[in-house]
Computed example of a mutant assay.
Amino acid sequence: MQLTHLWRYPLKSGAAEALEAVTLGEEGLTQDRRFVVVAARGKFVTARTHPQMQRLALREDASGQWRLWHLDRPELGSISFATNEQSERLDIQVWADQFSALSVSAEADAWLSEQLGMPVRLCWLGERSERYREVIGQRVSAADGFPLLLANEASLEALNRETPTADHGMDQFRPNLVISGAQAWAEDGWQEVMIGDVRFRLVSSCTRCAMVNVDPATGEKRGDREPLKTLARVRRFEDGQVHFGYNLVAVEPNRHQTLRVGDPVEVMAFK
């Protein structure tokens, strides 16, 4: 088994960034989900309600002295901004977690508000997230609940064999780590895996909603309600939810290590 894809999402619900290598810290992949869009009273906004967010590509420009970011929506323009640890702090909410984040700029807020058709603000978590999740005992980014998401190529192939169109891509499921060489759904029986020289614990399988029906290339939901419709038939667990992929935490989360495409994957413990 090996690691075949590394993806991060600098903006929560934004476009994926494919990587060949990336460092890993306590909060997940470096620069993964460090930015989040919030609406009134600081509540987070995602592609669940605004699927066009998946076409918003946020990339860091590391060529200059200052940390500069470019936010782009294809064919609709872009905006650039710098981050500052001294910016105004805002109270925000991601699911049930309430914590503070840093404002970015009035210009970025106005640009995003125009794109989404509602008043929003863009927030940055800073170099160190203020969000702490008791369930895993560590700080996390603006990800839904866990630092990392793992997916198995063979499991997607098995799902596609069950769907009427069989054309679903892994990008619809928005994982960070994609592996090959395993049997379909083998991950259901794993407790710990080693990827390269980093050991991970599989905390829980990932429950899925209609967001997997969004085509990342267009930012629109599919009219056939796939693949969630098929997932509901073949991957509904005892909790009544449908599942695809697994949430991961690093066993030693404070060690800064590097993951690379091509890293070997080995199961270290089974359930």
Score class of each variant (00 low, 15 high):
Met1Arg: 09
Met1His: 13
Leu3Cys: 12
Trp7Leu: 15
Tyr9Phe: 15
Leu11Asn: 07
Lys12Cys: 10
Ala18Asp: 06
Ala18Lys: 08
Leu19Arg: 04
Glu20His: 09
Val22Ala: 11
Thr23Arg: 13
Glu27Tyr: 00
Gln31Asn: 15
Asp32His: 04
Arg34Ile: 10
Arg34Ser: 05
Phe35Asn: 07
Val38Glu: 10
Lys43Cys: 04
Phe44Tyr: 15
Phe44Gly: 04
Phe44Met: 15
Ala47Trp: 05
Arg48Glu: 05
Thr49Pro: 00
His50Trp: 08
His50Tyr: 05
His50Gln: 08
Pro51Trp: 11
Gln52Ala: 14
Met53Glu: 00
Arg55Ile: 01
Arg55Cys: 01
Ala57Lys: 11
Glu60Thr: 10
Trp66Met: 11
Arg67Ser: 14
Arg67Trp: 09
Arg73Trp: 03
Pro74Gly: 02
Glu75Arg: 06
Gly77Tyr: 03
Ser78Trp: 10
Ile79Phe: 08
Ile79Glu: 07
Ser80Arg: 15
Phe81Val: 12
Phe81Pro: 03
Ala82Gly: 05
Ala82Ile: 04
Thr83Phe: 07
Asn84Met: 02
Glu85Leu: 11
Leu90Cys: 00
Gln93Gly: 06
Leu102Gly: 00
Ala106His: 06
Glu107Lys: 10
Ala108Tyr: 09
Asp109Trp: 13
Trp111His: 09
Leu112Gly: 14
Ser113Val: 03
Glu114Met: 07
Leu116Ala: 06
Pro119Gly: 11
Val120Leu: 13
Gly126Pro: 06
Gly126His: 01
Gly126Gln: 08
Glu127Lys: 14
Glu127Met: 07
Tyr132Ala: 03
Tyr132Gly: 07
Arg133Asn: 08
Glu134Met: 12
Glu134Ala: 15
Glu134His: 12
Arg139Leu: 01
Val140Asp: 03
Ala143Asp: 01
Phe146Tyr: 15
Ala151Lys: 04
Asn152Tyr: 12
Ala154Gln: 08
Ser155Ile: 10
Arg161Tyr: 07
Thr163Pro: 02
Ala166Trp: 02
Asp167Trp: 02
His168Pro: 00
Phe173Asp: 12
Leu177Asn: 10
Leu177Trp: 04
Ile179Glu: 00
Gly181Met: 04
Gly181Val: 01
Ala182Gly: 11
Ala182Arg: 03
Ala182Gln: 13
Ala184Tyr: 01
Ala184Val: 09
Trp185Gln: 11
Ala186Lys: 08
Ala186Glu: 15
Asp188Ser: 12
Gly189Tyr: 07
Ile195Val: 15
Gly196Leu: 03
Gly196Met: 09
Val198His: 01
Arg199Cys: 10
Phe200Cys: 01
Arg201Ala: 14
Leu202Tyr: 11
Ser204Glu: 12
Cys206Arg: 02
Cys206Ile: 10
Thr207Val: 08
Thr207Met: 08
Arg208Thr: 09
Met211Phe: 15
Asn213Ser: 11
Val214Gln: 03
Ala217Ile: 14
Glu226Ser: 10
Leu228Thr: 08
Lys229Leu: 15
Leu231Asn: 05
Arg236Val: 11
Phe237Trp: 10
Gly240Gln: 05
Gly245Lys: 09
Tyr246Leu: 12
Tyr246Glu: 12
Leu248Pro: 00
Val251Ala: 06
Val251Glu: 02
Pro253Ile: 07
Gln257Arg: 14
Leu259Ile: 07
Gly262Phe: 01
Asp263Leu: 05
Asp263Asn: 07
Val265Thr: 05
Glu266Asp: 05
Glu266Pro: 00
Ala269Gly: 02
